[in-house]
Write a protein that binds this DNA or RNA. Sequence first.
DNA 1: TCAATATTTCAAGAGTTATTGAATTATGAA
DNA 2: TTCATAATTCAATAACTCTTGAAATATTGA
Lengths: 110, 110
Amino acid sequence: MNESQVIKALSALAQETRLQIIRYLVACGKDGAAAGTIGEEVNSSASRLSFHLNILENAGLVTSKRVSRRIFYSASYEQMGGMIGYLLEDCCGNHPEVTSCCMPGTSNIS
Amino acid sequence: MNESQVIKALSALAQETRLQIIRYLVACGKDGAAAGTIGEEVNSSASRLSFHLNILENAGLVTSKRVSRRIFYSASYEQMGGMIGYLLEDCCGNHPEVTSCCMPGTSNIS
DNA sequence: TCAATATTTCAAGAGTTATTGAATTATGAA
DNA sequence: TTCATAATTCAATAACTCTTGAAATATTGA
């Protein structure tokens, strides 16, 4: 994951509705939830929801899959983990106080 | 750390210059670096740098301290850790594959 | 086929963010 | 005090983001 991908992911998460969506989808597990369900959960109109889901998908943070009339969205655990890993990268090793959340062996000492 | 603080921190990081600044400061350790030094590091004019440092400081991600003519900026490891913790919150427990970076015991199972 | 449901796309407008260069403030040295 | 250095503030502009409601597309069931 490179700098511009990380910026895209951070930008995507740095918005109230989208942060709520991601947290909801992460909690939903790998099957995710249909757009309509997510819209109810985060109190968003259809077009507004679609706009935000599109940004999350574009950032690689969610994936979608049509099932009959519905489109199910789910969190990309891989991308979430990748972004977090990038953020932790320079903390580990040098500054263990920041990265008490890092597993031994995961740190990328630069 | 609440939702709006996290959004502020994510927004602050979701910009090329500021992401570079934070990564540089994290690497600098707790004494940080003077504004001028940071500006050279990230190829930024003084006013542009000041604008971005102000946003990072406002988000609580850096702190500043004047030493004679210079102002030293350093990363706030506490705020970085807090933001990362919030992002990992709902991943842990439910979805261990996302949080291979989490230390056992750090997870906030909701 | 026609109507209903689920979702996306589009265009307009309001608000926010980033960049630039010039002016300003603060500090220290000659 | 005067000059130089270090950094911030300001105003203008350009670019981007979010919201809204209306229209369009896709799918299914009667």
